[in-house]
Design a protein around this nucleic acid. Sequence first.
RNA 1: GUGGGUGUAGCUCAGUUGGUUAGAGCGCUAGGUUGUGGCCCUAGAGGCCGUGGGUUCGAUUCCCACCAUUCACCCCA
Length: 420
Amino acid sequence: MLTKAPKGTKDVLPSQSGKWQYIEEKIRRICEVFGYGEIRTPVFEHTELFLRSVGDTTDIVQKEMYTFLDKGERSITLKPEGTAGVVRSFVENSLYSAAQPTKMYYLSTPVFRYERPQAGRLREHHQFGIEAFGSAEPSIDAEVISIALSVLNELGIKGLALNINSIGCPKCRPDYNKALVGYLEEKQSGLCKSCKDRMKTNPLRTLDCKEEKCRAIVSGAPKMLEVLCEDCSMHFEGLKKRLESAEINYEINPFIVRGLDYYTKTVFEIIATGIGAQGTVCGGGRYDGLVEQIGGPPTPGMGFGMGIERLLLVLESQNIALPEKSSCEIYVCTLGNAASIKGFEITAGFRQMGIKAECDHMGRSMKAQLKYANKIGAEKVVIIGDDELESGVAVVRDMEKSEENKVPFAGLNEFIKAGK
RNA sequence: GUGGGUGUAGCUCAGUUGGUUAGAGCGCUAGGUUGUGGCCCUAGAGGCCGUGGGUUCGAUUCCCACCAUUCACCCCA
């Protein structure tokens, strides 16, 4: 137990962290191009924030949060999603008083949910996310969605499906809910138990029930898209037009509703096949009432979350190899104590020039040192033994070509630099 | 929270129809040159056969429980 990471958590080992860094660099560049600035918010927030934003009837809040009392008796929760903290910060720091829109991203922020782990699901995972405040125009919806797609394209991922839908606004959704509940009540006897509950608490959620019998019933239900109010309908049309003009393929999926209460109008998911049952790599939507609900001025918002671990699963399933950095440019091989000291000095000199250099720390034989140098992918090896110490001239071996040169100690830096 | 699968070396896995010292490949360490890597050869280190209980003369093997892990449901990134 002592030497076991908690259930649903994973170490990112040095052999893997290069992939993370590569992805993160790509994402940062794309966000910059789109004009989004990075925001970092705390790993934990007041529990109240999530109750109010995510919604206290949602599964996330009801059974998945890591909540505890701190020593000052405050109820604290490890963030179960990325948006709430950013909204809180937006309000707290009065970012709404600057020129709008406010466009922000967060990267590899840890997110916690107490769930049973499975393929593509962890108790701690990491998200890249976008939040854009202040614009009610579908233009920003299209921009946010295209950021997600840019990231996926840039990484060479193929064959993902963009699903979009509109779930209306406080003006039109109540009417729809009424119509939906009316329809469901007629067919009530055929519904599963949880759908019967959902009819009362959150009827929209029946739309994405996985039960065969429910799906059959729900497929005949009235569609939100058919009863959107004028405003929502125009918004959705505006989004579609912009996606089309950017040649972004999408599918309208009236059954995606999302499990967080704050969504309005646009919702979307980007779905991968081939990484197990949890195929949603990216999900998000518009949240026009959220800022106000948290105590800020009425401010529209739009955003998404993307799971880094799921992204890595997709890359793996599509056999996309990410470029690896060369780990060692120069290995300094030394024989004996005096040479070891000189080698340490020479290694330090290389490092000061920004060259990736290593030396022996194991007191190994020359043969073993060369084996090791080969194993870590050293491009060149500088060899220093008694002869070299005496003459002040080192042997520089090119590992790939198996060629050797004699180079005076004083000229080593120049020689290596010239060879690069 | 519910259901199924799996737990033998660092990793991937054999194996014991219940019987003395539990195996392979890879990896690791050393050697095969007195100062030269990759290939090859040799040797070595490394296992409470997940944990606890039961059956038995005897359990890593059979039974039960627990734990871990994995896949799926619920839900989500």
